[in-house]
């Protein structure tokens, strides 16, 4: 049986007074790691809380792991781990005690909670510090505790709201590495929100961009890179020999006009092939540049 998609949002609307937080959002999320990208106030956190069943929609519906958030909020939350954006850890508890406590709240027995707390704190790199009180932790360590508590009951999906918020570059890099490992090595589906493009590119396979409560872009990141790597070659002489040479070499290449060609490339090897074929056919290259917007440009335009 095909497993249910992680998240299916259909026509979700939510307003707070005159502010529209979600405006007819329709999106399907099923990649191992999906990034929710957008400026502050774009509606990312509201969408995440709606996915958790903590925010009631004015209209529309959301299915998470095959269950409706309106009727099965508690069952859904039992299978999801969530790390809020804001500071939410009691400073007087140790990391191990907090994770244990939350494991018990999520239905694990006391014995299992102790074992799982140890496992997840090790997995996020906090084994040595597990007996220290959280109040003595750096911001980066506290973010890892939030991640550990979200993982403790082995959820099918974890939702991380701005997990790199406030971190310095080194802490941020380490956190992104841990998150990537969660989706790649631990096999847990991840939905991460951020307003930083680089965070999403480094951790996710798929991106959903939100602006003013609406989804403006929804695409796989890897495929996007393949699609946008289309080059436009402007030549000094007629481009026909170059086009013939590249087609013969297996590339997709079409003429735009007599001295301009569009070439689809897969990787840097193809880029070298264009250069070498131009040299071999004696067609001088005046200019070789991406054809159309790059992934960054496309994402930035969607973010607004």
């Amino acid at each position: 049986m095909t497993p249910a998609p992680a998240i299916v949002v259909q026509g979700a609307r939510r307003s707070y007074g005159s502010v529209v937080a979600l405006d007819d959002v329709t999106v399907r999320i099923d990649a191992p790691a999906t990034g929710l990208l957008g400026r502050n106030g774009a509606g990312k956190s509201t969408l995440m809380k709606a996915i958790l069943g903590l925010v009631r929609l004015d209209a529309g519906e959301i299915e998470v792991l095959g269950q409706d958030t309106r009727t099965a909020g508690d069952r859904i939350r039992r299978r999801i781990g969530y790390a809020p954006e804001h500071e939410c850890l009691p400073p007087e508890l140790t990391a191990a005690d907090l994770v244990r406590h939350l494991a018990e709240l999520r239905g694990l027995s006391r014995t299992d909670a102790i074992r799982r707390a140890s496992e997840v704190l090790f997995a996020v790199g906090l084994e040595e510090e597990r007996s220290r009180v959280i109040g003595s932790f750096s911001l980066g360590m506290r973010q890892r505790v939030k991640l550990a508590q979200a993982l403790v009951h082995a959820p099918d999906l974890i939702i991380l709201d701005e997990p790199t918020n406030g971190l310095d570059p080194i802490q941020r890099s380490e956190m992104l590495e841990v998150i990537r490992r969660v989706s790649q090595d631990l096999g847990v589906r991840v939905l991460i929100s951020s307003h930083i493009l680089d965070d999403i590119r480094r951790t996710c396979d798929h991106v959903v961009v939100m602006r003013q409560g609406s989804v403006t872009l929804n695409r796989p990141l890897a495929a996007a890179a393949g699609e946008t790597d289309v080059l436009r070659a402007e030549t000094v002489a007629p481009a026909a020999p170059l086009i013939s040479g590249l087609v013969a070499a297996g590339l997709t290449c079409t003429a735009i006009d007599e001295r301009t060609a569009r070439i689809a490339i897969r990787d840097d090897g193809d880029r070298d092939l264009v250069r070498d074929t131009a040299a071999a056919t004696g067609v001088g290259l005046r200019r070789l540049h991406p054809d159309g917007p790059s992934i960054e440009e496309e994402l930035l335009e969607a973010i607004g």
Binding site: R75, R78, G107, D112, F122, A123, H153, A154, D185
Partner: peptide, 17 residues
Amino acid sequence: VRYRPYEGEIKGSPRRA
């Protein structure tokens, strides 16, 4: 990473929470 999927029982009873 000493992490493995949890295969124990997760009891969703309100009494335990």
